[in-house]
């Protein structure tokens, strides 16, 4: 089969897997939160969330009606052939998924306010490209909900305040977001680079599994500190009060300009949908996050 067909087929499967089945690490974190939540209102919300996850799997229907903006991350091996055909294949897969899964049409022209009806439009689905060694194409889809996107934030902090400035920025972002991003959320936090680089890194950090703290102990410590602080806010599940406000925090960084301290916080709702597969040179496909769900 031609690579375009393989990619289209795999991308369609990834979108379908992502919107119906939550990744195992997110499910486990929600179950743990339900067991540990002490607020009655919060517990009711977590129970509804867990029931809903089960129903979605049973009926093979999207977990949430907001099936998100379709965002791809393509780690393309430098030796992969016909890379120029991939963009079109991803657009076709998005159109097909919108019709067949189905997905909610979520692509609107900001000038005319018209919905394209098929989740495609200028720069949408968005594709993040990385060139890596080898001949494997690794594709990840993130179907990103609007409620949690609306509270993502970037800031240019005061370099003199250092990491303390970042901590303050993150806590204030969580408090300001309150109930809006469908807590318990996952936070992607990034500093450095530039305003665009920080938010890009923060969003990409949302793809990391919850049970994998950063290998750098200093960063892992910061992640834990921010996680505990966010859960001290009392916002709770769906903002109705409780001790589960975030399920996890991932921190990323780039070096910064001496005069700048860019920072960004990306939020993902509890329905943190993502799916990954690898397409090898011989045409074999390996589903990474959703084995046995094709």
């Amino acid at each position: 089969m031609e690579i375009a067909n393989v990619v289209e087929n795999v991308a369609f499967n990834l979108i379908k897997q992502a919107v119906i089945y939550l990744p195992e690490d997110v499910k486990q974190a929600l179950k743990k939160a339900y067991a540990e939540e002490t607020s009655a209102a919060g517990k009711t919300q977590l129970k509804a969330i867990l029931d809903n996850i089960e129903l979605a799997e049973k009926y093979k229907a999207p977990i949430c009606q907001d099936t998100g903006t379709i965002i791809f991350y393509a780690n393309a091996g430098a030796d992969v052939k016909h890379l120029d055909k991939i963009e079109n294949a991803l657009i076709n897969a998005t159109r097909k998924a919108t019709k067949e899964v189905p997905l909610r049409p979520n692509a609107v022209d900001p000038f005319t306010q018209k919905n394209s009806g098929d989740n495609t439009g200028r720069f949408i689905p968005y594709i993040n490209w990385d060139i890596v060694p080898g001949d494997t194409l690794e594709l990840t889809v993130m179907t990103k909900g609007g409620g949690s996107e609306n509270v993502c934030t970037t800031g240019m902090l005061v370099p003199g305040e250092g990491i303390n400035g970042l901590k303050k920025f993150v806590i204030e972002a969580v408090i300001k977001a309150g109930s809006q991003p469908c807590p318990p959320t996952i936070l992607g936090v990034a500093m450095g680079g530039g305003s665009d680089i920080a938010i890009k890194l923060a969003k990409k950090a949302l793809l990391k599994p919850l049970n994998e703290p950063n290998p750098n102990p200093e960063i892992a410590k910061l992640e834990k500190e921010l996680y505990e602080a966010a859960n001290m806010t009392g916002i709770g599940p769906m903002g109705l009060g409780g001790k589960t406000t975030v399920l996890g925090v991932h921190v990323e960084y780039a070096f910064r300009h001496p005069a700048s301290f860019p920072a960004a916080v990306a939020f993902n709702c509890w329905a943190a949908r993502r799916a990954t597969a690898r397409i090898h040179a011989d045409g074999t496909v390996e589903y990474v996050t959703h084995k046995g769900r094709v």
Binding site: A61, C64, P105, C182, C269
Partner: peptide
Amino acid sequence: AFTGGAAILAAKAIKKVKGVEWLDLGTP
């Protein structure tokens, strides 16, 4: 307050779509 994201829980309680108006605004 209905649990955000609990879309199938909601859909299962919807027994019938009785009608739709203003579809020109887009389905959402």
